[in-house]
Write a protein that binds this DNA or RNA. Structure first.
Lengths: 345, 345
DNA sequence: ACGCGTCAGGCGAACGTTCGCCTAACCTCA
DNA sequence: TGAGGTTAGGCGAACGTTCGCCTGACGCGT
C-alpha cells in the first residue's frame, strides 16, 4: 500500500522517457541492450507494477469477465458448478482475465444490470450458466451486442450465440446401453417436464438406446415430472406398484437427486438397489461418493466445459473470431454398485 | 457496445460543462432545477453510464474485492462455501463493490500474486477463507498492509487481523448437551489432529459439556485423526469394538463427512443409527438432507458470516475504521433422526 | 449607491497508462 | 559524398473521470 510506483518514477531513475519505459516493458520497441537492462533493473528495484486501471482506461477494456449464475434454488446445492467455476477462473487467468461474480437471483430480470455492467466498462463480456428453457437473458444480451458464452443452451434449433454444453442425449444413451448389457430389458426413465430442455435432451437418449436395441417402450415406464428428490421418490413408488410383468428392473433418471429419491423408495419396499433394481443418475454430484450403494451416473466434464467457454469468449473478445461457436462435450459413464449385480428372477 | 456516451456528450447536449454534469450526477453541487432537469433528461436520452474505469483511475480505488479460497482438496466438495460466496457477493453489491475470484490452489504460495493484485490496483482488499492452522497468507498480507478480512482464524491467541468465524466450541457444546438430554452418557468424539485449529476448537466444546455434566471422559472416547469419510468410518469401527460397558452410545463428530463414515460403519455392524447409537455432524452440508436417517448437525451461519465479512472489510476500505475486528457467530443446532429415539438397553 | 456574501457553474489539472508520430543519429550504397 | 533507409528513443495527446479553485452575477443590507 506504500505509495505506488509509476512509469514516471521508473523513467526518472533510469534516465529515459516514461513512454519508452512502457514500450520496453511490453516489448513494443527495440532499444539497446544497455537501456533495456537499466530499465529492467530499475523496475525491480522500485517494485514497479503497471496500474491496470490506467491501462484499462487507455485500452478500453477491463479484462474482466462477468460470471452469471442462478443461486441454486434450494439450500445452496449446485452439483457441478463449483468445478466449472474453478475451471473458468483458471483458464481466464491464463489468458489475462479475471472473473467477476454476478449472481442472478431467480425471479429478477436483471438484463438492465447486464447492460450497465458492460456499458460502464466493468466487464468485457459474460459467461452465463443455468440457462432456462427460453432464457430471456440471451436475446437481451444479444440485442445489446454484448459478448457472451453460455454453459448450456436454451431451446433453439439453431442458436445464434456461442455455448458449450454437455451431450445429455449421448450420455443417457450410454447408460441405457450399459443396463441392456447387464441383462435389463424393462427399463424405466424419470425425466423432467417438456419445458426442460435438459430433461428432454436426456430423455431422447433413452429412447434412442431402446430403439436401437429393438425394445418397445411401455408408456408406463416413461415418467416426466418436476422436482428432484421428492419427484424421484414418488415416481419410483409408482413404478414399483406396477404389476410384476410390467414392473421395470432398472430406473434411469436424469439427475442424481432424483436417483437418490428413487433409491430410498426402493429401499422402503424392501428391495435391494443393484441386485433387484438398478438405478442410475446424472451429474456425478461430488457427494454421491458417500452414498451406499454407490450410484452409477454420468459425470459432466465441467472442467473441460469451463476451459472451452473461456477459450471461445476470449477469442471473441479479442476479435480473433466473431461468429458463434457451439461445442457439445460427452459425459463420462461412471459405473458403481447401483447398476451391477442384477439377478433376473 | 455502441460507442460509449461520455460526460462530454451529455454536457454538449445539455449546454453545460462536462465537469458540471459530473457534479450534478453525484449531487456534489447545487444548480438551478432547470439545469438539473435538463441534464438528467439528457442522461436518460443518451443512455449515459459513468465509465467505472475512468472513475477508478481518478479515485485510486477499484471497488473490487478479491475472494481467495482453496479449491477443495478433493472432488470439489465444499460444504458451505457456496452460500458464503453468494452472501458476500450480495452484501458487496449493496455497498458498491464486486467480487473478483481468486482461488489459491493448495500448495502454491501466491503471496506474490496477492501483492501484485493490490499494487496493480486490481483489487482494493481481500477476503480469505479456508485458513490453515498457521496460514502464511495472513502475515504476508499484513506485512504489505493490504486490507483483509478472513472467514475463520488461524492459530493465534490474540489475532491482529479482522476475521469472522463460527463458534465451533459453543456449537459442539450444544450438541453434546442435546445428547445428554437424550439420556446418553458414554459419548465419544471424533476430532481432527491437534494442528487443526477448527478441530481443536470443536473438541473443546465437547470437553466443556462433559465437564459441566460431571461425566468423566474415557480417553478411549476421544479420537483425533486426519481425514473425512474414511477417518470417520475407521474410527467408528474402533469405537464399536470396545467392550460393551465402555462402548459409546453416541458419537459426536466435527464434520458431516466424518459422521457419514461413522454411520456406514455402524450400519455394517448391524446396528441402527439413532436407535442404537446416535451420531452427529457439523456443517449441515446441503446434501445431508438426502441422507437416511437424517443427520443431526450444526448449521454454520454462512450467510451471516458473509454479510459481516463485507461489512468489516468495506468499513476498513473506506476508512471508517482501521482497527481489527473479530466476530464469532454461533452455529445452529439442527436435530434430525440420527440423534433421536435412543433406547438404552 | 456601494461593498460584500452567496450561489451557479466554468475551468484547468491530474489519475497512469498506451498510441502514433516525430526526430536525430547512424548506416548503407551508388 | 550525398540521398535514402533504418534505428533508438522522445514527445504530445488521449482514454473519461473527479477535484479544487476560480469567476461572474445576483441579492441584500446599510
Amino acid at each position: 500500500m506504500a505509495k505506488k510506483v509509476t512509469l514516471k518514477d521508473v523513467a526518472k531513475h533510469a534516465g529515459v522517457s516514461y513512454q519508452t519505459v512502457s514500450k520496453i516493458l511490453r516489448g513494443q520497441i527495440q532499444v539497446t541492450p544497455e537501456v533495456r537492462a537499466r530499465v529492467q533493473r530499475t523496475v525491480e528495484e522500485l517494485g514497479y507494477r503497471p496500474n491496470v486501471t490506467a491501462r484499462n482506461l487507455r485500452t478500453q477494456a477491463s479484462h474482466l469477465i462477468g460470471y452469471s449464475w442462478q443461486p441454486s434454488r434450494q439450500n445452496f446445492l449446485s452439483p457441478i458448478l463449483e468445478e466449472f467455476e474453478q475451471s473458468v477462473v483458471e483458464a481466464a487467468e491464463k489468458r489475462g482475465y479475471h472473473i467477476l461474480l454476478f449472481p442472478q437471483p431467480e425471479g429478477t430480470d436483471s438484463s438492465k444490470t447486464y447492460e450497465e455492467l458492460v456499458y460502464s466498462g466493468r466487464v468485457d463480456g459474460f459467461i452465463l450458466s443455468d440457462l432456462g428453457y427460453d432464457d430471456r437473458r440471451i436475446p437481451a444480451l444479444q440485442a445489446l451486442n454484448i459478448p457472451l458464452v453460455a454453459f448450456g443452451r436454451t431451446h433453439c434449433d439453431d442458436c445464434t450465440y456461442s455455448f458449450v454444453d454437455v451431450d445429455g442425449r449421448a450420455g443417457v444413451r450410454l447408460v441405457v446401453k450399459h443396463l441392456l448389457n447387464q441383462g435389463h430389458e424393462r427399463i424405466a426413465v424419470l425425466a423432467w417436464p417438456e419445458e426442460s430442455r435438459v430433461g428432454t435432451d436426456r430423455l431422447s437418449g433413452y429412447l434412442d438406446a431402446m430403439n436401437e436395441a429393438g425394445i418397445p417402450v411401455d408408456p408406463a415406464w416413461v415418467k416426466r415430472g418436476a422436482g428432484e428428490y421428492d419427484y424421484g421418490y414418488a415416481a419410483a413408488h409408482e413404478l414399483l406398484a406396477l404389476p410384476a410383468r410390467q414392473r421395470p428392473t432398472a430406473i434411469v433418471t436424469v439427475f442424481d437427486l432424483i436417483a437418490i429419491g428413487a433409491m430410498h423408495a426402493i429401499d422402503e419396499r424392501g428391495l435391494v438397489v443393484g441386485r433387484d433394481i438398478a438405478v442410475t443418475g446424472f451429474d456425478d454430484m461430488p457427494v454421491i461418493v458417500y452414498l451406499r450403494p454407490g450410484l452409477t451416473t454420468l459425470r459432466q466434464p465441467a472442467w473441460d466445459v469451463g476451459q472451452r467457454v473461456i477459450e471461445i469468449l476470449v477469442d471473441q473478445l479479442e476479435g480473433n473470431t466473431s461468429e458463434a461457436r457451439q461445442v457439445l462435450l460427452p459425459p463420462e459413464l461412471i459405473i458403481r454398485e447401483s447398476s451391477q449385480g442384477y439377478q433376473p428372477s
